[in-house]
């Protein structure tokens, strides 16, 4: 049951059928290596989000197994729902560390014992002024909320961050800034990502490898540079055609 140390997550032959009969995952296998970004693209209803939830252990698969190396964190699509509107920014931001179960990671170790200083530093990493710590989510823009969700995710230096459509509900220029931020953080901290989106261009921008999902299956799986290779599956070509006239 052990996996090589350079692998952060390995899912083997996952299947899941919902009670209504819908087959959400159909024999899905994937591996994410340390420091890389695996992209998953597909239309809505292709099973991307179910996959994310199974990998995060929020839902359980019917068949198959998942082996994880270390902690997982997630950033979801809707920034407003990702922060509890009744809690101050600092209380949402510090939730992973507040539990006391996870030790402060090395990049935060010199703030030890000082919750507020740690929180300020985390906000600084995502370009948000420390004065926002006592603000409530409704005082922030969508992009700012998403930045805070990202800061929260990196606070425990997780071995994998699952990004489930993290930019889909944001304005174009905000999307671009968030993508840049994610890329910068990945380089600075050597993070591993699983980047899920219906937007093939965003997936291409972020990932070294791309998997395409359709009707619960991973139909193909290739290195990003090979996106325009002629052997691509019709489903991939369809996704490309949306952007290319």
């Amino acid at each position: 049951m052990s996996i090589p140390s350079e692998t952060v997550i390995e899912a083997e032959r996952l299947s899941k059928r919902y009670k209504c009969g819908h087959l959400a995952l159909d024999d899905v296998s994937l591996t994410v290596k340390k420091g890389e970004c695996l992209g998953i693209a597909g239309e809505s209803g292709s099973g991307k989000s179910t996959l994310a939830r199974c990998l995060l252990a929020i839902e359980s698969q019917d068949i198959g197994k998942i082996m994880r190396n270390g902690t997982m964190q997630a950033v979801f699509q809707n920034p407003s729902a990702s922060l509890n509107p009744k809690l101050k920014v600092i209380d949402s931001l510090m939730e992973p560390l507040d539990g006391g179960k996870i030790a402060y990671p090395s990049f935060l170790s010199h703030f030890r014992e000082d919750r507020r200083k740690t929180a300020e530093f985390l906000l600084k990493l995502v370009d948000i002024p420390g004065s926002y710590l006592d603000a409530y989510p409704h005082q922030l823009s969508g992009g700012q909320k998403q930045r805070i969700s990202i800061a929260r995710a990196i606070s425990v230096e997780p071995s994998l961050i699952i990004l489930d459509e993290p930019t889909s509900s944001l304005d174009v220029s905000v999307q671009a800034n968030i993508l840049n931020l994610l890329k910068d953080l990945q380089e600075d901290f050597g993070l591993s990502y699983l980047f899920i989106s219906h937007d093939l261009a965003a997936v291409r921008f972020m990932s070294q490898r791309i998997a395409i999902m359709q009707r619960g299956k991973i139909v193909e799986h290739f290195a990003s540079e090979e996106l325009f290779s002629e052997e691509r599956h019709p489903c991939t070509q369809q996704l490309i055609a949306v952007f290319e006239s």
Partner: peptide, 19 residues
């Protein structure tokens, strides 16, 4: 999502209800 994230962060049901 914030409840899902709380679960991911290891909060128990009682803590989620309270917080």
């Amino acid at each position: 999502e914030y409840v899902l994230l709380a679960k991911i962060n290891g909060l128990r049901s009682f803590q989620i209800l309270k917080k």
